[in-house]
Design a protein around this nucleic acid. Structure first.
Lengths: 271, 271
DNA sequence: ATGTATGATCCGTAATCTGGATTGCTCTCC
DNA sequence: GGAGAGCAATCCAGATTACGGATCATACAT
């Protein structure tokens, strides 16, 4: 490798593009609307610079501008690109219908996520009559150690792989959140033996989730499918087996769609 | 004072941002993967410029780069922003669950779209068992004159408003596509009197769609809800009334969620 | 009507970006 | 296996382009 001299400049690239895109980053689920002055404060850029950059973003449809209120929002061009990105994903294509069926069959939420580095990334999200939610989780990120899907996604990995991935911090969202590596490993072992992972009020009070892994042709876990909802709707002590069976069944169906053959040794020597 | 004449410069903004974002535009449903050389050809920019720009886009997660194949795809950051944008939309929030219910109840596709200028813009899209489709329509655009939802969205407008909006061109997707303004106005009148719009193989062979308008508190049509599917699954001559009733019912439910009161005079002096 | 806050526009400066050339890599073909 | 072609990342100097302070216009509150 030619790593002889330079250490590769951090940015390496186009400054104004970086600035414009970091403006987009300022639009979060908590602050989906921003005014220029906020963006100025957040970024530390000059006011005229921000004004000009959002003007460009607006001209290309990446943000929209409500002239009356002066608020900027994310524009439809972004949604268009996202649709293309999702349709590009074989996991999304294979999961969509099946997750939707699962949601309406059980009346609970059904979700598909994959792992992006040390985080969960939601690809599909459907609601059930018993667990209505008015917003989509698609595109959101979540913690691996505090979600059933996160655990399902990790269940392939060894302790040696997990430790550096998650680091030392295990943020506690509720008192029941798993607090350290050992706790997580124990839970993962449980999940492996049962074929599905659980999460009971580890991320939010009153909510629970069951998840099963999705594998591709190579046998590797590439995503996870879950059912989730309020504890009351999941009726967990009683329905746990029934729900878990359904999740596993649907997850396997997705795996088959991705070319997985059960014959491929599930966990052992898969390169 | 001095600049009393100029009518606001078109670009007005940051060139390199414009270039970077137009690179993103090159990723379409037909070409979701691009290599640098393609982007160079498409944009006419220098090869090193493109390389640097996509490098910046990649660093911020707006594209991903498969080092092996050299292909760039749209990145997860875009999906994250799109989720925020959708959750920002009251129409999307109110429609999501109801459209999903409609899809699983009827076993057909259910969609919600709003009008963006002279185009249809899909906000929600669910499939039914009888009409499976592996990709999402969310974020896609479509023609107003050749879709049931487009007609539902136009049914509020007067001929004087529609004519400049659609212009003189009525692209024909099939022999049954409505070909001109008069044909469209007649169809819209039908839809208004029935309370729902139809589309029978006007956009694609073998497919049909029924749509009803969604209104907000002001009584204005702000979106449309549809069921769609293969003609065979829709069983149109027979089920048309049943399906239309369901669509209207669910659309009204969304309208109520948006604050619409049937008492509000639908078309007259609102403001 | 006065005062405040926000945001769009203008303009000179210089920092940043451009693109030709170079390098390094991979794949293909002989 | 070696040569050649294609592709993409990196380098560099010149000048185009973007930055941001200041100004102006507008909306809203006092």
């Amino acid at each position: 490798m030619s790593r002889s001299t330079t250490v590769r400049e951090v940015g390496g690239g186009t400054q104004s593009v970086e600035r414009a895109l970091s403006l987009l980053r300022a639009f979060t689920e908590e602050h989906p609307e921003r005014r220029v002055s906020e963006l100025v404060q957040l970024t530390g850029l000059g006011q005229s610079t921000v004004s000009r950059l959002v003007g460009t973003l607006e001209a290309l449809g990446f943000v929209t501008h409500d002239g009356r209120s002066g608020l900027y929002r994310i524009g439809p061009a972004v949604v268009g690109l996202a649709g293309i990105a999702l349709n590009q994903s074989p996991i999304h294509r294979q999961s969509r219908q099946i997750a939707q069926d699962l949601a309406s069959e059980l009346g609970l939420g059904a979700n598909v996520a994959e792992r992006h580095g040390a985080e969960l990334f939601y690809l599909c999200n459907f609601e059930g009559r018993l667990a209505p939610r008015s917003f989509t989780l698609v595109g959101r990120r979540g913690p691996l150690h505090a979600t059933a899907m996160g655990k399902a996604l990790l269940s392939d990995l060894t302790a040696e792989e997990i430790e550096p991935l998650l680091g030392a911090k295990y943020p506690a969202y509720t008192p029941r959140t798993i607090a350290d590596l050992n706790g997580l490993l124990a839970d993962l072992a449980d999940g492996r033996s049962r074929g599905y992972s659980t999460e009971l009020e580890e991320l939010a009070f009153g909510r629970a989730c069951l998840a099963a892994p999705i594998r591709d042709r190579s046998g590797r876990i590439v995503a996870a499918l879950s059912v989730s909802g309020p504890l009351s709707a999941m009726d967990l002590p009683h329905r746990q087996n029934e729900l878990a069976l359904k999740v596993i069944e649907h997850a396997d169906q997705i795996s088959v769609g991705l070319g997985y053959h059960a014959s491929a040794t599930p966990l052992s020597a898969v390169v």
